[in-house]
Nucleic acid binder design. Structure first.
Length: 740
DNA sequence: AGCACGCCGACT
DNA sequence: GTCGGCGTGCTC
């Protein structure tokens, strides 16, 4: 009789090694893999997920306790194993892996799932005794952290999370302070913030499909998928098609074919902002069998969509990377649109890659994986069967790309670029200008003593921002912001110089130079304002003429037929990045932007400003030759033993001091060496990383021919160091398998 | 991660 | 003596 439930408690602790066994009482029916249980755990009660149901336990039965309750809503078993696999694959914890697949609204909170739109927050405030204690500190004995916490609270109440960031005070320290009556702790119920705006390009009209019949290429692509789709056989396919070659049409037909077999489809897009427009295309075909799933839906909405998918009412889901965890019934197809996009990599713990998760899920479900891109990753090119869509559906040619040598120029825009923009104005057309920097100027210095303005929390220079007359210096890595200096604090000189040009400055300069043509700015600062991206793009589309200035966002997925000129202001900004993927990224960015131009009747052109016009990735991009670029890139990576010919695992430590970060890293490296005495894995570093949000960091890179042994060595060494060695408590480890 | 236990320095 | 910070160990 199966009466034991193996449960993973939903806690983030690294040192905790589950699963833990619980005795299922007679009355508690329907406990299966995926059931969520409220269980007693030590002195606490905690939410956990059943990962296995067994008839026996290694522990004597009388040591086991019974769950307190079972939640109504659980997780499909298929997703439980996917979550646990991610935990392993990314060197994370079971709880964090499982958190990815839980029904919406089921946090990692203790107790029971918050059904209401509230969450509990522990808020600390200074008690009268505490204020007195600060006034004459000598009267009370306090630890360093406690003193810091008390002092921080003088500015008003704060949450535990805030205090641990500012004063390093943890729950335990605060509870002791509370026990002594120096502070008060209150559990405050706060309303979960709900997205009140419809996201994405709500206002943008969908152009009717030019053609509902497939081109010969599209048909060939589809035909090559159908056998596997109909047989329920796992297969991977890379659809390599230039911008405008009709990849979406192939996705639609493939999803329709899956649906004919009674099977569901997951469609992944790189960004939430791209969800609505893709969802709309699919809705034309599939009506209300479409669901949309992303983190900015309100909790209620998200829960409803999740339920519709789980019940099988909706059979096609569109969303960003997290939609790969959609609880669909009978998965038959996963589509990954713009598969090269780095947004598919999740930047929190676990640092999963939705493309890899999709591969795994499709494989387990016997589903077809269909990836599409105009600029595929070298990895996919090498490992996936490929089908080419060489022509644009409208029969137009790709626009000519011109590389402009910036070595002789001191302006942000070359004379030829300015002339081309002026021509756009005269013709009443539209242009897109890609500027890879937010703000006005990326750095400031003092003309007389050379002082540079840096962030006090991070080792980066502050960016000068100027918008609507307001000026600030901002750090792009943390929330730090300070007023613009009038004089240099070191030498009292009043001559402070701003260097370089960002989106704000280009916007202002173009506004002046090209008046009365309207200039629209698209970057994260502009997107945050009311209306957001959608409204901005709508205004650009509605305008008869105009310039769209912005960061990478302008290169993505929005089609404007009247754009006849695309400019990359500084193509080297991505190339200068010290990273083996920088060439691929640059190639892709230039190609994507080129795809935005030249759909107009007057044709189009692309200008790429660069200090390195002879660089091979720009040369290939100028010829629209993705194939040769990738082949060359693959040869280079093979020689240097980079992915896909090797696997990289990046381990980072962070701490309040460099010494602590380094020490922890050395301890880890020792533990790792013990795990892999004879391995062929190469351990590079540790090397210090630049300081971020007040935390000093250290980085270790492990390079290995095979992924599994490297990952498992790291996975074994981690808890040993975290739990065993007495590295100072505030050291944090972070592991990134296959960093982007 | 939480939570309790127990060691040991600091102060009555 | 006692108070309280801080290190250590455990959770089915």
């Amino acid at each position: 009789v199966a009466s034991i439930a193996r449960v993973e408690p939903l806690t983030t602790a690294r040192a905790l090694r589950g699963p833990f066994d619980y005795r299922i009482p007679k009355g508690m029916e329907q406990v299966e893999v995926g059931t969520m249980l409220v269980v007693p755990f030590g002195r606490q009660r905690m939410l956990g997920v059943v990962v296995e149901v067994a008839s026996q336990s290694e522990l004597p039965l009388e040591r086991l306790v019974e769950p307190i309750a079972a939640l109504e809503q659980g997780v499909p078993a298929e997703l439980v194993s996917l979550g646990l696999w991610i935990a392993d694959d990314c060197c994370s914890t079971p709880a964090r892996g499982l958190a990815l697949v839980l029904p919406p609204g089921t946090g990692t909170a203790r107790g029971h799932a918050p059904a209401a739109r509230t969450r509990e927050l522990l808020v600390a405030s200074l008690a009268p005794a505490g204020s007195a204690a600060i006034a004459d500190g000598s009267e009370v004995r306090l630890g360093g952290r406690q003193r810091l916490a008390l002092e921080a609270l003088r500015n008003g109440p704060a949450t535990v999370a805030e205090l641990s960031a500012s004063a390093g005070a943890d729950h335990a320290a605060l509870r002791r302070l509370a026990a002594r009556g120096l502070i008060e702790l209150q559990s405050r119920s706060i309303r979960r913030e709900l997205a009140d705006v419809e996201l994405g390009s709500a206002g943008i009209a969908v152009r009717p499909l030019e053609r509902r019949t497939l081109t010969a290429d599209q048909k060939a692509a589809l035909d090559s998928l159908l056998p596997a789709l109909r047989a329920g056989r796992h297969e991977r396919l890379l659809l390599h098609g230039v911008t405008g070659s009709g990849k979406t049409e192939v996705y639609l037909r493939a999803a329709a074919a899956a649906l004919e077999q009674g099977r569901s489809t997951i469609v992944l897009v790189p960004e939430i902002a791209l969800t609505p427009q893709t969802a709309r295309r699919f809705r034309e075909w599939f009506g209300d069998r479409i669901a949309v799933l992303h983190s900015r839906l309100g909790l209620g909405e998200r829960y409803d969509e999740w339920q519709r998918l789980r019940r099988g009412d909706a059979r096609v889901v569109v969303g960003p990377r997290s939609a790969v965890f959609a609880p669909v019934r009978d998965l038959g197809l996963i589509v990954i649109d713009e598969e090269h996009d780095s947004a598919y990599k999740h930047e929190g713990d676990p640092r999963y890659d939705a493309r890899r998760v999709a591969e795994r899920r499709a494989e387990l479900a016997g589903a077809v994986l269909l990836c599409g891109s105009a600029t595929p990753r070298a990895e996919s090119w090498l490992r996936t069967r490929r089908i080419v869509l060489p022509e644009r559906v409208d029969g137009q040619r790709l626009p000519p790309v011109e590389l402009i040598d910036m070595r002789e120029t001191h302006h942000a825009l070359h004379r030829r670029t300015r002339e081309a923009l002026d021509e756009v104005r005269r013709e009443g057309a539209k242009a897109i200008v890609l500027v890879n920097r937010r703000g006005w100027s990326p750095f400031l210095d003092c003309r007389s003593c050379g002082r540079a303005w840096m962030c006090p929390q991070c080792d980066v220079s502050l960016t000068f921002h100027r918008e609507h007359g307001a000026q600030r210096l901002l750090c792009h890595h943390c929330a730090h912001s300070e007023p613009v200096p009038g004089v240099c604090p070191d030498c009292s000189s009043t001559s402070v110089a701003r260097h370089g040009a960002g989106t704000q400055r280009l916007e202002a300069e173009l506004q002046e130079a090209l008046a009365p043509m309207p200039v629209f700015r698209l970057d994260t600062d502009a997107a945050r304002r009311k209306g957001g991206i959608a409204e901005l793009l709508h205004r650009f589309e509605q305008s008869a003429t105009g310039i769209l200035v912005g960061t990478q966002m302008v290169a993505q997925g929005h089609d404007f037929p009247e754009v006849s000129l695309a400019v990359v202001q500084d193509a080297d900004s991505t190339l200068r990045f010290p990273d083996f993927r920088s060439e691929e990224r640059t190639f892709s960015l230039v190609s994507q932007l080129a795809g935005r131009s030249g759909r107009s009747e007057r044709g189009g052109r692309v200008l790429v400003q660069t200090l390195l016009p002879e660089s091979s990735c720009l040369q290939h991009a100028a010829r629209h030759d993705a194939g040769s670029f990738i082949e060359e890139e693959l040869r280079r990576r093979e020689v240097l033993a980079y992915p896909p010919f090797a696997e990289l695992v990046e381990v980072t430590t962070s701490a309040a001091t460099q010494a602590a970060a380094d020490e922890a890293m050395l301890a880890f490296k020792e533990a790792l060496d013990e795990k892999t005495p004879d391995s062929k894995a190469q351990v590079l570093g540790p090397a210090p990383l630049f300081r971020l949000k007040g935390r000093y960091r250290s980085r270790l890179l492990i390079k290995s021919r095979e992924r599994a042994p490297a990952v498992s060595a790291v996975r074994d060494a981690l808890p040993q160091v975290v739990a065993g060695r007495r590295t100072s408590t505030d050291v944090k480890f972070s592991v990134d398998v296959d960093p982007q």
